[in-house]
Simulated scan of single mutants.
Amino acid sequence: MNNVKELNKWANAHTYFTLDLVRIALGVFLFVKGVYFITNIPYLVDLISPIDNIGGGMFLVHYITPAHMIGGIMIAFGLLTRWAIIAQLPILIGAVLVNFMGEMHTESLFLALVTLAVCFFFLVYGSGKNSADYYFKMYQ
């Protein structure tokens, strides 16, 4: 627990508005991706078809879309950012692996790798000063 507090103190001391904009953009991107998946279920089923033989295909469909939508909103507002990103990590790692197991789509592989890298950054950095987490912590 002390490590998280130390990371929060460091992040709050080194907060930049551009990083908050990147966090908000990540949240909006994940939310839009979740909306796209929920409106285009056959596309999502086609995406996860290389790992569907493992089992749990319908579970994945019902996990990916709400996790992207709810997690995207939480990340954009900076509310429980680390927990929301932890929920995104299995999806993003799976998005990278699906490109190697099935047909290779370089643009979606690049997008998944960039999103995964940004998520890892915010997993360590946290939500920053301009977030709901900071607001609730300061005004309890």
Score class of each variant (00 low, 15 high):
residue 17 F to S: 15
residue 97 L to R: 12
residue 120 F to Q: 12
residue 52 D to H: 14
residue 125 Y to T: 01
residue 132 A to F: 09
residue 133 D to L: 02
residue 110 F to C: 13
residue 90 P to C: 08
residue 75 I to F: 01
residue 59 F to W: 12
residue 34 G to K: 01
residue 4 V to R: 12
residue 54 I to F: 15
residue 109 L to A: 09
residue 47 L to D: 11
residue 89 L to Q: 09
residue 135 Y to D: 02
residue 124 V to R: 08
residue 80 L to P: 04
residue 101 M to A: 13
residue 91 I to S: 10
residue 10 W to R: 01
residue 13 A to Q: 06
residue 58 M to G: 10
residue 97 L to F: 15
residue 79 L to W: 11
residue 12 N to L: 15
residue 55 G to P: 13
residue 77 F to C: 13
residue 14 H to R: 09
residue 120 F to Y: 11
residue 130 N to L: 11
residue 40 N to T: 10
residue 139 Y to G: 02
residue 24 I to P: 01
residue 129 K to Y: 02
residue 119 C to L: 09
residue 7 L to F: 03
residue 16 Y to T: 07
residue 79 L to V: 07
residue 125 Y to D: 01
residue 30 L to C: 09
residue 98 V to N: 09
residue 65 T to W: 09
residue 13 A to L: 03
residue 131 S to M: 07
residue 134 Y to G: 08
residue 57 G to N: 07
residue 125 Y to Q: 04
residue 59 F to T: 04
residue 82 R to N: 09
residue 77 F to W: 03
residue 72 G to A: 04
residue 80 L to R: 15
residue 56 G to P: 13
residue 73 I to S: 10
residue 75 I to T: 01
residue 72 G to P: 02
residue 23 R to W: 03
residue 67 A to P: 10
residue 72 G to Q: 00
residue 65 T to F: 05
residue 41 I to L: 12
residue 121 F to I: 09
residue 90 P to T: 08
residue 21 L to V: 09
residue 28 V to H: 01
residue 76 A to R: 01
residue 53 N to K: 13
residue 95 A to Q: 10
residue 47 L to N: 12
residue 20 D to A: 04
residue 67 A to D: 01
residue 15 T to Y: 02
residue 28 V to W: 04
residue 61 V to P: 15
residue 59 F to Y: 13
residue 31 F to Q: 06
residue 4 V to P: 02
residue 82 R to W: 04
residue 63 Y to T: 14
residue 64 I to H: 03
residue 56 G to R: 12
residue 110 F to R: 12
residue 138 M to A: 08
residue 77 F to H: 07
residue 6 E to L: 10
residue 70 I to Q: 03
residue 14 H to S: 02
residue 103 E to V: 14
residue 109 L to P: 10
residue 13 A to S: 05
residue 56 G to W: 10
residue 91 I to M: 10
residue 81 T to Q: 05
residue 55 G to A: 07
residue 16 Y to L: 09
residue 64 I to R: 04
residue 60 L to F: 07
residue 35 V to L: 13
residue 12 N to G: 12
residue 58 M to A: 12
residue 39 T to V: 08
residue 17 F to I: 11
residue 92 L to M: 14
residue 129 K to C: 05
residue 65 T to V: 13
residue 23 R to I: 08
residue 36 Y to R: 05
residue 13 A to H: 00
residue 140 Q to N: 07
residue 130 N to F: 04
residue 28 V to F: 00
residue 67 A to L: 05
residue 33 K to S: 14
residue 114 V to I: 13
residue 14 H to A: 02
residue 71 G to N: 04
residue 81 T to N: 05
residue 86 I to Y: 15
residue 30 L to G: 00
residue 91 I to R: 09
residue 96 V to P: 10
residue 46 D to P: 04
residue 53 N to L: 05
residue 69 M to A: 07
residue 43 Y to P: 07
residue 27 G to C: 03
residue 107 E to D: 15
residue 2 N to W: 03
residue 139 Y to W: 06
residue 47 L to Y: 11
